[in-house]
Design a binder for these strands. Structure first.
Lengths: 339, 339
DNA sequence: CTGAAAGCGCTTACAG
DNA sequence: CTGAAAGCGCTTACAG
């Protein structure tokens, strides 16, 4: 049970001062070669590593970045974390993950917990509650304290900071356009409530694509789902009461769930109903037929967010630069659920 | 841009000592009511929160726990994190997440990075490389330094520590038994190489179930997949060259992939081929037909791991207690891919 | 070439 | 009732 060794212990061992040990280990030219050799050898043998906490206190930076996400068990967010973790680790930062579980209160608590010196900056995506409530004081407070924040995906213009998003509007637009080009006319939309920034943009993309093709928007074909992982009865109603030859779902799960409901009702995909989703995750690959979908490139979003955050943390001139909103291009991945 | 306020600044503001401020904010009986009131009011107004790093250094504990996982984008591991994060946050701990990406080297680097004082203890699951290599010195080193480790899911008996696993053997056993009871006799197994602890146990469960039912194990029906997310050609060969009336896949993805291959070859599930997977994730719900699967209760595993870790961290008598291996019961979730 | 001192932000036993 | 001092583990400007 050899505990971690400290500078103090090494200094005592050789009857020198702590400063000498510290300098010797940094190979400072101030210290004689002989002393350095002895001390370095001893440190190596005992696996000396400087204590991170002490360094953090001294340097006034933790080399930790905090990330607050609404959830994590689904492809998009976990791929974001993968990207964040990869670049952060490569740059010498640790990643502290908090999950708001779509709750405003948890989001606030998480932020305050981390803002007390545990991290150097935030990456975050708004919880559903927060978007509904439109209350962003906790984020602005943190920013006012001088801690940089990068918002991703679910963002708001009521917070002034760096942002990384995808082109939700265009992603949706081109998905719907693709359906139209393949001859579909009765295209249903399964989307989120409008207070969700991404849901709103994707809905607008859908409407614009229809309009540009001269197809009138039929509000009966638009279903807004409150609960992202259940409660799809309205989708059943949709198929029952309307003629539908295509579905665009603004999440993978919306799309596949709609497809399964259609299949249960005797419609076959893609013949009777073409289906396109959003997020190119495992669901899309595993479903039958596999799903055509808009890829969000989550890892790329995560990496870009880390890049912006670390720049603001480390680059002298960057700190005072105006905030950027980086837009990652989405892309349509064609599979079996469309013709 | 009001920076975070410190005790020093408050003390200067009222011309008292730092000690007085510190005590006043802790509502110490040593301090006069009047002083306490003034200081507390001021602190509240300025949102004073003690600096976590300073507390960590003083208390010699960080209230952070580190978790190292092979990957995160798939259901089982992300549900483990969800469970870990939930209980940890509730108990006042932050969670630092590292991803080994199935690489031994990254696992070692991650551990060393966190072991330098950033965290109080580890939760981890072995990378594929590490299991293959059977090199666990980095874990034992950390434990020898007095830092508790809880291993989950992918474990080894070459490290002595608390562990949380599921009953892989029995989970597999009952899945295969269920297939046998429904009349299947030519049951294929899609599994991992034997060096993967969980793969090995599930394979053994499969074999035992067959043996107990008096069915001879046909090695031609066993496919070992090296790459967990691709390279399923051997599965095609399996169906081509053998009569198969059921498949047990030791991951969700193995099972669904095999099912899709069977479907492509004109076999229908569950009529021609019954299919059971492992992990009750979104793939299982989204596939057509939906997948019967062995649920691993990832969140529960995560919570139990946190529970064991924090006990060892905080409970006086627990520290010296013998290590426990907690076994979480798996359960068979029946859906459409079996009759 | 080596070491004492100050400091990062906090706590707490001790003195007054 | 208040404050000075020591300490957590480290770094670094300064003195010798």
């Amino acid at each position: 049970m050899k505990q971690k060794i400290t500078l103090k212990e090494i200094s005592r061992r050789f009857n020198v001062s702590i400063s000498t040990v510290s300098k010797a280990l940094k190979d400072s030219p101030e210290i004689s070669e002989k002393t350095k050799e002895i001390i370095q050898a001893f440190a190596k043998e005992h696996h000396y590593k400087p204590n991170n906490i002490a360094l953090s206190l001294k340097n006034q930076k933790t080399k930790n970045i905090g990330i607050i996400l609404p959830e994590i068990v689904h492809y998009f967010f976990s791929s974001v974390i993968t990207g964040v973790e990869r670049l952060a680790t490569a740059k010498g930062y640790n990643v502290i993950v908090c999950i708001s579980n779509e709750s405003f209160d948890k989001e606030v608590i998480n932020m305050q917990m981390l803002a007390n010196g545990s991290i150097d900056g935030f990456i975050m995506s708004l919880s559903k509650d927060t978007e509904k409530k439109q209350d962003f004081h906790h984020i602005n407070e943190v920013i006012n304290q001088g801690m940089p924040v990068v918002m991703i995906d679910r963002i708001t213009d009521q917070v002034n900071c760096d942002k990384v998003i995808i082109d939700d509007f265009h992603g949706a637009y081109s998905a719907v356009q693709y359906l139209i080009e393949s001859g579909r006319k009765r295209i249903a939309l399964i989307t989120m409530p409008d207070y969700m920034s991404v849901g709103k943009l994707r809905t607008e993309g859908y409407k614009k694509a229809l309009a540009d093709a001269g197809i009138e928007v039929d509000e009966n074909l638009i279903v807004k789902v409150e609960d992202f992982y259940g409660g799809f009865e309205p989708v059943e109603e949709l198929f029952k009461n309307n003629e539908v030859d295509a579905v665009f779902g603004v999440t993978e799960f919306f799309a596949v769930s709609a497809m399964k409901i259609a299949q249960k009702m005797g419609k076959s995909a893609p013949k009777d109903v073409s289906v396109i989703g959003f997020t190119d995750g495992i669901i899309s690959i595993s479903s039958s037929p596999s799903l055509t979908t808009v890829s969000q490139h989550g890892e790329e979003i995560g990496e870009k967010a880390v890049d912006l955050l670390i720049k603001r943390l480390e680059e002298e001139d960057f700190e005072s630069r105006p905030y950027e909103t980086e837009i990652i291009k989405s892309s349509l991945v064609k599979r079996e659920s469309t013709l």
